[in-house]
Design a protein around this nucleic acid. Structure first.
Lengths: 119, 119
DNA sequence: CGGTATCCATATGGATACTG
DNA sequence: CAGTATCCATATGGATACCG
């Protein structure tokens, strides 16, 4: 790891890791991004697929992800309406980050072994 | 990325990324871990170094990190008391994760360039 | 279908005072 | 010095109803 990566940032505002956590953190962003990494998904399907998440929370979370440039919202002018959410190119760049985090948890939280060589 | 890394986890409970975020996420955990990655630090120094974080929050956050096995609390039986927090070996394994997250934010949020080759 | 609005419960955050 | 306890403000979460 390069020296600058050890630079100490005071507070939460300037901490680059916190900045990343603001984008993918919280209770629901990771599962949503994870789903969208597989394929573009409609609002209702996200709601069905992620149990326990209130409509309001899904709506707000998607707006935040859109504002951060991670997901793209595409509305089809049909009746009944159809809205599809997909990963933006910037969202795609999160793939290795998510993969490393997933791997870390599987090894160090869930106790799996032999997956370190994946990355 | 291996196929299994694309496995879809429903909800927040089973999502391995969420599991990682539970450990390093929230408003203050990353800055604290970041500081401890540099050197073991005393309670009061953490409090001084991270402005805006209430004592209560620092205390609770450290307890969570300790419960998750990320930090080690060492109390010296002196008067006045001295308590030093340091990264555990498990906490050390977070280093590449934190570094990748830091790098992602610097490139994709703060707009820096030329740092991709670090990892 | 894809949301928003509303209401309410709970969780989290921050300041200050206090204790071992 | 290293926390806890208390009080209060604000934020977040969830259920339901409603709208374009």
């Amino acid at each position: 790891m390069a020296e600058k990566d050890l630079k100490i940032y005071h507070g939460a505002d300037e901490c680059p890791i916190t900045a990343t956590i603001d984008v993918i953190g919280g209770k629901w962003k990771a599962p949503i991004i994870w789903l969208l990494m597989k394929s573009p998904t409609r609002f209702g399907e996200l709601h069905k697929t992620i149990p326990g998440m209130a409509l309001k929370v899904l709506s707000r979370t998607l707006k935040e992800l859109e504002a951060d440039g991670i997901v793209i919202r595409k509305a089809y002018p049909e009746v009944p309406p159809r809205v599809e959410y997909s990963l933006s190119p910037k969202g795609e760049t999160l793939r290795p980050v998510m993969a490393l985090m997933s791997n870390w948890s599987r090894v160090h939280i869930m106790g799996e072994v032999g997956t370190e060589e994946v990355f």
